[in-house]
Design a protein around this nucleic acid. Structure first.
Lengths: 333, 333
DNA sequence: GTGAAAGCGCTAACAT
DNA sequence: ATGTTAGCGCTTTCAC
């Protein structure tokens, strides 16, 4: 019943435990004949190496950790999936941790995680630069959608795409645009907001900032009411979830999209094409960026110590939720 | 730079390593004064116990494993999230593994996982009963949305809700209904199909079975075309993802939902309320069932060995994607 | 109440 | 090419 150990198979094969270890890990270091005996014994006993013991001896867990704010967010879910696959292909297991978008919890979890993994990918962290640096000192780390000086990272700024979005809306005749901002604690949110602000300024559009909002559907529903009250003809949202909630609620209220108001999101989550009208959005290449982050991490684990920074810009995907501004718009106060 | 060990803090506190271990794990077993010294030393050095070493010594990892077919599936994502939270609250970490809906990979991953966790929750497994039993023998296991004799599990059959759905559609005048079936390899798919079949038989409705289809949006898009060709007035789908794909594609093709055809899914994923019309669907209480499974698992880890079986039925949630059958429907061959 | 010693299952020098 | 020894960091008898 108890799982067989390396000693059991050593006994059965009539060799020493270390020979078994060698035979299994480095077959070419042992005589063919011994190899056969060992393999046969292992086979016979159904031997499986004990990863915990290996970890302790090797000082290497074979795990890599991934910290995300919200696994259930359709933006992060595909990231988790690709990273798990990529990690596995590289011989690692992925240990995923969901922080519930809470900085303190993120810190706690990271602390715990750090000892059980060989490296860390931290996506959209809410941690301060100092704390991230502290983690990075104790464990090879690469940040995703966040850049910290001295720590490897892959940034995925939405700025380019957001500017494209503002330009598009301006070209379509929108002069007053609402911006539904993200969580106050999120750096990404701050970044996106300032991108939109400067794009608006540069395109002569008046920007009405609403929020902060948590990055959820429900928040979007709430946002929709505020948007309606402001009488804008277009609304840009911190992310697709908010945008979809807004979109849905606007329609519920009889506001036509894009007839009465245009809606633009950020992320290009899978559901963006699922709603009617399909959502125009700034696509963030999160999976590609995640893969890049993993690549950097692997290089670090192979000894390359110098921090690497990389940037992958988002771009606007125009779909049906954006259109020309209503010309018969009610006058504003 | 290297993390402090128990010996470092022992040295600093002027006691032996074993005392440190006791002080940290069982404070009441050491003198108050020693306790203080140890705690202070630990504090000072920023000591964090090494979970891998603890695991090896304690023969207990503090992890529980969760195997899901697809993390990115909006049906499973919330499950992962709740389980992670619940597990953490109970002092465990959750190790999640995505099998990509592949039985072989599931087997491989399970094998690897089993040694790194104290217990296993397997959701919607594609494994054979024998293999699940084999896993259960080696590691406390509870199945979710699947029942295997001799292994604890929480079932979430859709049968009740599917029957309600067929009854509803029949009452609304639908006499020919399409069933878009799930993956051939999935037991859940087989179960649901037979539930629908008997409900159809019992309600005098003709059932057109289509498929198998993979449980994805894209599959639903394909299914929509088949559905159209069959000239039915209602379609029930293996899950919400397929249903949403179908819904979307039908509308794209100018087929009104529910005016021309009614659409019903299974799961009640978060997006079901996000599309227009909102999707009528059989709600599967997956999070509650997951929590129950975790509860059972914890009891097993606390020594309770006898297998527990539990069932949580799905129920129909009626929304706007289902309505009366068209009366002017084209005659069928 | 505390320390010494053994051991969790494996790997890695170091001998031979 | 193989066995012996020591050790990864922690816990736990077993003495004292």
């Amino acid at each position: 019943m108890a799982a067989p150990t390396i000693r059991d198979i050593a006994a059965l094969a009539g060799v020493s435990p270390s020979t078994v270890s060698r035979a299994l890990a480095k077959p070419q270091m042992v005589a063919q004949e011994t190899l056969d005996r060992v393999q046969q014994a292992a086979q016979q006993l159904g031997y499986q190496p004990h990863p915990v013991a290996q970890s302790l001896a090797l000082r290497r867990t074979g795990n890599i950790g991934l910290i995300v704010p919200d696994i259930a967010n359709p933006f992060f879910a595909p990231l988790v999936k690709t990273l798990q696959r990529d990690a596995r292909a590289a011989g690692y297991s992925l240990f995923v941790v969901d922080t519930d978008e809470d900085a303190d919890q993120e810190w706690e979890l990271a602390q715990a995680l750090i000892r059980q993994v060989d490296g860390l990918v931290i996506a959209s962290s809410r941690l301060s630069d100092e704390r991230i640096r502290e983690l990075a000192e104790r464990c090879p780390t690469v940040t995703l959608s966040r850049m910290v000086e001295g720590v490897s990272g892959v940034a995925t700024p939405a700025g380019v795409g957001l500017t494209q979005a503002v330009e598009l809306l301006a070209a379509l005749g929108h002069t007053r645009i609402a911006w539904v901002s993200g969580p106050a604690a999120s750096l990404t949110a701050a970044e996106r907001q300032s991108s939109v602000e400067s794009a608006a300024a540069g395109n002569d559009v008046e920007l009405i900032s609403l929020g902060p909002f948590s990055p959820t559907l429900n928040a979007g529903v709430r946002a929709a009411e505020l948007v309606r009250a402001r009488g804008v003809t277009a609304v840009m949202c911190y992310n697709d979830l908010i945008a979809l909630g807004t979109l849905q609620q606007l329609q519920q209220r009889g506001v036509a999209v894009p007839g009465d108001v245009s809606v633009v999101g950020v992320d290009d989550a899978a559901l963006a094409v699922l709603v009617a009208p399909r959502l125009s959005t700034v696509r963030i290449p999160i999976c590609a960026a995640g893969a890049a982050a993993l690549g950097i991490l692997r290089r670090m684990l192979d000894g390359n110590q110098t921090p690497v920074h990389q940037t992958m810009d988002g771009e606007l995907i125009v779909r049906e939720s954006s259109g020309p501004a209503r010309s018969d718009q009610a006058p504003q106060g």
